[in-house]
Every structure is written in structure tokens, then in C-alpha cells.
């Protein structure tokens, strides 16, 4: 029981992390991959925030009658990490828009098929010209 209740927040973190990671790996849709990536990152944010929280403690502002304070540093770190996460998501989505324009699809497997076709065409081109100088 201790294993579940005592470490509850870590279980949540692990659960979220694996959901996010699995989405990134398994989904072919580029937007869904980014959603998965976000869940993956958020799990780490939760991990940092819960790590510094102390039961019954308050924000680190000196006041009478308060003895226990939570550690504010991880919270601040995560503010930075959130900004980085937002930038990554924005860039990822912007790339997805450009990919949709260029390939007409945001399904990874369809795009990969098109790319392989292009590669094969280039190879035939390279070898064909090589054979008849």
C-alpha cells in the first residue's frame, strides 16, 4: 500500500511519461506526435514540481508562525522549461504546416513513402547517367 500511496505522484509521472513517449513512437500523425511530446514533457514538469513540495509547507515568504517552506527553485526551473516546451511545440507545429504544404499530408508513413520514391528516383538517375557517359 505504501508503494502506491506513498509514491503516488511518481506513479502519475511515470504513467504520463509512458503515455507521451508511446504516442511519439506509435502515432504516424505528425500533430499527434507533438501532442505526445507535450505530455512527455509535462510529466517531467510534474516530477520537478512534486519533488519540491512539502506537506503543510507554504510559499517561501518569511512570515510569523510559519516554519516549513517549499523549495521554490524547481518551480522556477520549470517555468524556464515550460517556455522551452512552448517554443518547441510552436516550431514543431510550424514545421508540420510547412510539411503539409510541401507533401500534402501529415501522415508520417505516407510522407516516408514519398521520400523513398524520391530517393529511388535519384539513385536511378545517378546510376543511369553513370552507365552512359
Amino acid at each position: 500500500m505504501e508503494l502506491i500511496t506513498g509514491l503516488f505522484n511518481y506513479w502519475v509521472v511515470v504513467f504520463l511519461m509512458m503515455i507521451g513517449f508511446y504516442m511519439v513512437i506509435s502515432h504516424h500523425n505528425l500533430v499527434k506526435k507533438i501532442v505526445g511530446l507535450n505530455i512527455f514533457q509535462v510529466s517531467v514538469f510534474v516530477f520537478y514540481i512534486s519533488m519540491s513540495k512539502i506537506k503543510g509547507a507554504t510559499a517561501p515568504i518569511l512570515a510569523d508562525g510559519i516554519e516549513v517552506y517549499s523549495n521554490p527553485l524547481p518551480h522556477v526551473l520549470i517555468l524556464t522549461a515550460i517556455v522551452v516546451g512552448v517554443a518547441t511545440t510552436a516550431l514543431g507545429l510550424a514545421l508540420t504546416v510547412r510539411i503539409k504544404d510541401a507533401f500534402g499530408s501529415i501522415e508520417d508513413d505516407e510522407i516516408e513513402a514519398m521520400e523513398i520514391e524520391e530517393c529511388v528516383a535519384e539513385d536511378v538517375d545517378a546510376n543511369g547517367k553513370e552507365a552512359s557517359p
Partner: peptide, 11 residues
Amino acid sequence: RALTAAYRYLI
């Protein structure tokens, strides 16, 4: 293909 390369690198 630079776009998809950048996307995969991003992930």
C-alpha cells in the same frame, strides 16, 4: 525533405 528531416530531428 529538409522539412521532414528537421521535424524528425526536433522530435
